[in-house]
Amino acid sequence: MNAEEKVYHERFMREAISMAELALRTDETPVGCVFVKDGEIIGRGMNATNKTLNGTRHAEFIAIAQILEEHPVTILNETDLYVTVEPCVMCASMLRQYGIKGVYFGCWNERFGGTGGVLNCHSDTSVDKPYPVHGGIFREEAIMLLRKFYVQENDKAPEPKQKKTRELKTEILPMDIHAPKPS
């Protein structure tokens, strides 16, 4: 990636991060995304699993629903995704079935990542066309947002003993990156 490309991709990842920040402020797992066609954002999404009580309402689902309300599905063939955390296995498969052009993400998701973290849904054997992925754009910011959520979560955890012992750790990633809180 040359300097010019870097500036281009970072511009959109910055937008994805602001969606993740919005999620954090509204009590959702801080994962955000934007979909970009020809240099323009055509859809935005953030995790909504808590609001909907639906564990599949990840940022990518929310944004694609918004896009398909206005555009034909074929627009996704010319659209790139920028998402703060690597798409999970479910989203990675969904994106391939819709024929996404490419995926750019911040940090890897070692617990259920679908584009390298656990599976390679973007490139492995499938009836659908593969897509390129590029990870690591503003990786630290994406991780820091998740850590903030992790600590914030603990403030609300039922066992008060545990929350006192938890702090903003630097080397531990939260395990359930997309999962809604038990109600």
Partner: peptide, 27 residues
């Protein structure tokens, strides 16, 4: 209850990768 904990899923065909993972996400 929480998500689909304790529930069983019956599908006519083997679910695709996306739906298999949705079943897992939903517990």
């Amino acid at each position: 209850g929480y998500l689909c904990v304790d529930m069983d899923m019956y599908v006519t065909h083997e679910p695709c990768v996306m739906c298999s993972m949705a079943i897992l996400h939903s517990r």
